[in-house]
Simulated assay, not measured.
Amino acid sequence: MFPKNAWYVACTPDEIADKPLGRKICNEPIVFYRGQGGEVAALEDFCPHRGAPLSLGKVIDGKLVCGYHGLEMGCDGKTVAMPGQRVRGFPAIRSYPVVERHGFIWVWPGDAAQADPAAIHPLEWANHPEWAFGGGLYHIACDYRLMIDNLMDLTHETYVHSTSIGQKEIDEVPCTTRTEGDEVVTSRFMNNIIAPPFWQMALRANGLPDDQPVDRWQICRFSPPSHVLIEVGVALAGQGGFEAPASVKASSVVVDFITPETETSMWYFWGMARRFKVGDPALTASIREGQGKIFGEDLEMLERQQQNLLAWPDRNLLKLNIDAGGVQSRKVLERLIAAEQGTTAEVV
């Protein structure tokens, strides 16, 4: 289950640069494209003539033209024209609130009357000259909440990502979790340790030694409907850790926008925003490649986990203190979904 009255990342601008894009969001088949003037439009991916997917068509002069019989759609979901036919009386198809912001296309799959662009998650690093960003997209066959669990409990790094960002200290140092309104924050601070391979690379890239002890931090922030932003980094030991000056640390924000496709599949928009060597595109590409491999390691685990959960639906999952971030995030989601549906949230 997922909230529908919320803003989700639907795609990136390059995905609709030259043709329409069909993508299912929260079980809603939607076609995204640029209309007249370059504005983004989002319509039900259904031609009112014969039911063909409009995403198989093309955009001509800002109008979406069905690839089956040439019916033209306006950005408001109303039929405009069709060669040799009178079609303006066709019933309108559904249009969705859509906004282009922060380098992403955001869609509201729920009640359009409640869609307020001001509610789109603020991103301090987006389009900011002091930040660099690189990322990508994975389609994963699992419940989106499993990815939230994964990101709010980083102890799995020791095992799933043992050759890149994992290290035994993650297991040894306890995390703390707190809830602030609809936001859940899980934090872990590891002092006087040796940086793992990924962070050794980041230290070198920032002109810092990679063989000295460091203080490392992980601060995971969940906010509904399904965003997880993680402040991560290392600083030379004894220099203040998270609060250390930029000259002695390498830090960044891991960006995770998790968009449900169905109850058992999702679109995962991942990336990393950093504040060091921001004018180095080669470093951005290197970090994106390394991060892509790291997140790729999660993919098989999550999909196989989903298969197990479907095979044994009556099995109860055990909860430990390390699961607190995911558990609290699910409580927030259950409360929001219950409010949307006019019911009472189930107590976890």
Rank of each mutant, 00 (worst) to 15 (best):
residue 102 H to G: 01
residue 295 F to T: 02
residue 216 R to T: 00
residue 3 P to F: 03
residue 214 V to E: 03
residue 260 P to T: 10
residue 210 D to C: 07
residue 72 E to R: 13
residue 63 K to T: 09
residue 7 W to C: 02
residue 206 N to R: 12
residue 190 M to N: 10
residue 337 I to G: 03
residue 193 I to W: 00
residue 187 S to K: 15
residue 290 G to D: 07
residue 38 G to D: 07
residue 172 E to S: 13
residue 103 G to S: 03
residue 149 D to F: 07
residue 338 A to V: 01
residue 234 V to E: 02
residue 35 G to Q: 10
residue 11 C to K: 00
residue 195 A to C: 08
residue 335 R to F: 00
residue 337 I to K: 06
residue 107 V to W: 01
residue 94 R to C: 10
residue 311 A to E: 11
residue 147 M to I: 14
residue 10 A to K: 00
residue 24 K to V: 15
residue 143 D to H: 13
residue 156 H to S: 07
residue 74 G to W: 03
residue 220 C to F: 05
residue 8 Y to G: 00
residue 89 G to E: 14
residue 333 L to M: 14
residue 294 I to T: 15
residue 132 A to H: 09
residue 179 T to C: 11
residue 347 V to L: 13
residue 284 T to W: 03
residue 98 V to A: 12
residue 27 N to V: 01
residue 269 F to G: 02
residue 201 M to A: 13
residue 115 A to V: 04
residue 155 T to G: 01
residue 277 K to M: 10
residue 314 D to K: 14
residue 116 D to M: 04
residue 240 G to D: 01
residue 78 K to M: 03
residue 310 L to V: 11
residue 46 F to C: 06
residue 238 G to Q: 06
residue 224 P to H: 07
residue 80 V to W: 01
residue 74 G to I: 00
residue 87 V to A: 11
residue 173 V to A: 10
residue 162 S to P: 00
residue 316 N to Q: 14
residue 53 P to Q: 08
residue 258 I to L: 14
residue 80 V to P: 00
residue 47 C to E: 11
residue 202 A to C: 15
residue 108 W to V: 03
residue 134 G to H: 09
residue 205 A to Y: 04
residue 295 F to G: 01
residue 106 W to S: 02
residue 246 A to D: 13
residue 190 M to Y: 01
residue 132 A to K: 13
residue 181 G to C: 10
residue 170 I to F: 11
residue 167 Q to D: 13
residue 106 W to I: 01
residue 71 L to D: 05
residue 6 A to G: 10
residue 51 G to I: 06
residue 332 V to D: 04
residue 58 K to Y: 12
residue 44 E to T: 00
residue 334 E to N: 14
residue 80 V to L: 14
residue 138 Y to A: 06
residue 110 G to V: 03
residue 182 D to H: 10
residue 78 K to F: 03
residue 68 Y to Q: 05
residue 176 T to C: 05
residue 297 E to G: 10
residue 240 G to K: 02
residue 274 R to I: 08
residue 184 V to K: 08
residue 59 V to Q: 11
residue 213 P to A: 02
residue 125 W to K: 04
residue 35 G to A: 06
residue 159 Y to V: 14
residue 211 D to H: 12
residue 317 L to N: 12
residue 150 N to C: 06
residue 143 D to F: 08
residue 150 N to Y: 01
residue 265 S to P: 12
residue 255 V to A: 07
residue 143 D to L: 05
residue 189 F to A: 10
residue 119 A to G: 00
residue 55 S to K: 09
residue 156 H to L: 08
residue 233 G to C: 06
residue 95 S to Q: 11
residue 79 T to G: 05
residue 161 H to G: 11
residue 20 P to F: 07
residue 269 F to V: 02
residue 159 Y to P: 08
residue 107 V to K: 04
residue 19 K to E: 11
residue 217 W to V: 04
residue 49 H to N: 06
residue 179 T to N: 04
residue 168 K to P: 07
